[in-house]
Structure formats: structure tokens, C-alpha cells
């Protein structure tokens, strides 16, 4: 049931993005006569503090959120997995060095480090993605390194090694495929946390810049008018919550699906 709900919400948002593109809703169309209007037949979810359509901005915002989340996850996963594989496979000094670097990044609270980077690099979409990527690879590196340490001594890896397989082949053909399911589950959780981080940075004014829509910036604006126009903050808050919840539930169900022990039970 939960699985259906999660996939349903995800499907709904993906469909919404496609439909938003199809209907060419303009998220930046200002209408000073419709400032903070409640939902109506013309504006289904009402208007924001500049009279722009909340629906159009929400759809544009989810597009930005997904773009950031997918890009950052792809970059962090690639970097993290590569570092983890190298550290785990080679061990010794390479492992020690790479893990010390990882520990340095782990020592900082991720979002604070991202805030510091975003502040130094300046606000903007690209800088936001760089800031989030700089801190997001650590969990992948740790996870991959731990798994690789145990996998490298498996019989099939040793057999391939004795048959003269090269290191890239060993890693690419004999270790990495065994990590895929774990990494996919980790990536789903990472998607949700990147979306929250993006919203947080935009909420603080360090993310997407005006007039572009992002859920964090919309939340920030909505909070200012919480008493005057509660529909604004509620709609954005509920949307963000539903999407994050759906991604997390999706991740849970994926983990359950890939967990062989549960199948054995």
C-alpha cells in the first residue's frame, strides 16, 4: 500500500513536470493585481507575493529540485564510488590517505559546509550544485570502501586476478556489479537529502536566484505571509513534504526488494 502511494506521488510529480512543460505555464508572469490571492478558477493554487501563479512556480520549482538532486547525486555517487573503490581495493597507504580526506569532510556538518561554500562561491544554480557535490560524496565513499574491502577477497575476484584480469576489469566487472543494489538504495536517500539541502540553501537565499522558482525560496516567501496568506506556505510545504516522503518510501521499498535476507524470511 505504502509502496503504491510512494510510486503514485512520484508519478504524479513527474507527470506534473511534463504537463507544466506542455501547457507552457510562465512561472515569472507578475500580476500586481493578484498579489497573494487565494486559489481561483484561473489560478488553481492561488498567487504569490508578486501575483505569480503558485502552480506554475511549483512545477518549475520541482523541475529545478529534481535537476539539482539528480545532478548532484550523479556527481557525488561517481566521485564517492571511485574513491571508495580505490581505497577499498588497494588498501594500505592509499586507503589511509583517502579515508583521512573523507574523515575531514565527514567532520563538518554537511549542510553547514555547503552553506559556507555557497557563500564563498556566491549564490546561483551552478554554485549551489557545486556546494552540494563537495559534501555529498562522503557517504558513497565510506559505503563503497567498506564493501570493497570484503569483496576483494572473494573467490571470484581472486580467481579473476589469478587469470590475469586488470585492475579496471576486476573493479568494473567483478566488484562494482555487486555494489549496485546498495548504491541504488543509498542514491534514493541521497536524492531526498539533496532536495532538502537545496531547499534549505534557497530558503537562506544562497540557492536559486530571483526570479527563478525554487521550493526553498517559495517556502521562505510563504513563511513571511503565513498569517496573511496561509495557502501559500501550506501548498509549498505539503508539496515538498510529499515528494521527500515519496522518495524515502520508494527507497525503503527498493531496499526491501533488494534485501535477500528478507526474502529468505
Amino acid at each position: 500500500m505504502i509502496k503504491i502511494l510512494a510510486y503514485g506521488i512520484l508519478l504524479f510529480w513527474l507527470l506534473a513536470v511534463v504537463l507544466g512543460r506542455l501547457f507552457q505555464l510562465d512561472p515569472n508572469q507578475i500580476d500586481l493585481n493578484a498579489i497573494l490571492h487565494t486559489p481561483s478558477a484561473v489560478y488553481w493554487l492561488g498567487n504569490d507575493d508578486l501575483g505569480r501563479s503558485i502552480l506554475a512556480r511549483l512545477l518549475h520549482g520541482v523541475e529545478v529540485s529534481l535537476l539539482v538532486a539528480l545532478s548532484v547525486t550523479a556527481v557525488t555517487m561517481t566521485v564517492g564510488v571511485l574513491i571508495g573503490l580505490l581505497a577499498g581495493f588497494y588498501g594500505g597507504r592509499v586507503d589511509q590517505f583517502l579515508m583521512q580526506v573523507t574523515d575531514v569532510f565527514l567532520a563538518f556538518p554537511g549542510i553547514l559546509l555547503a552553506i559556507a561554500f555557497a557563500a564563498v562561491l556566491g549564490p546561483g544554480l551552478l554554485n549551489l550544485m557545486i556546494a552540494l557535490s563537495l559534501t555529498g560524496w562522503v557517504s558513497y565513499a565510506r559505503l563503497t570502501r567498506g564493501q570493497t574491502l570484503s569483496l576483494r577477497d572473494r573467490q571470484h575476484v581472486l580467481a579473476a586476478l589469478s587469470l590475469g584480469a586488470s585492475v579496471p576489469r576486476l573493479i568494473g566487472k567483478h566488484i562494482l556489479p555487486l555494489l549496485t543494489s546498495l548504491l541504488v538504495v543509498e542514491a534514493t536517500y541521497s536524492l531526498a537529502s539533496v532536495m532538502i539541502a537545496e531547499a534549505s540553501l534557497s530558503f537562506l537565499g544562497l540557492g536559486i536566484q530571483a526570479p527563478n522558482a525554487s521550493w526553498g525560496a517559495m517556502l521562505r516567501d510563504g513563511v513571511r505571509y503565513m498569517l496573511v496568506a496561509p495557502h501559500y506556505v501550506l501548498i509549498v510545504g505539503m508539496s515538498l513534504m510529499s515528494l521527500i516522503l515519496a522518495i524515502n518510501l520508494g527507497g525503503d521499498s527498493l531496499r526491501d526488494h533488494l534485501d535477500v535476507r528478507q526474502e529468505a524470511d
Binding site: I30, D49, L50, A210, P211
Partner: peptide
């Protein structure tokens, strides 16, 4: 920021 956005438009 709000006023700047209006001027931008």
C-alpha cells in the same frame, strides 16, 4: 528582493 523582481519584470 521583491521590489527588485518587480523592477526586473
Amino acid at each position: 528582493l521583491r521590489l527588485a523582481t518587480i523592477m526586473q519584470a
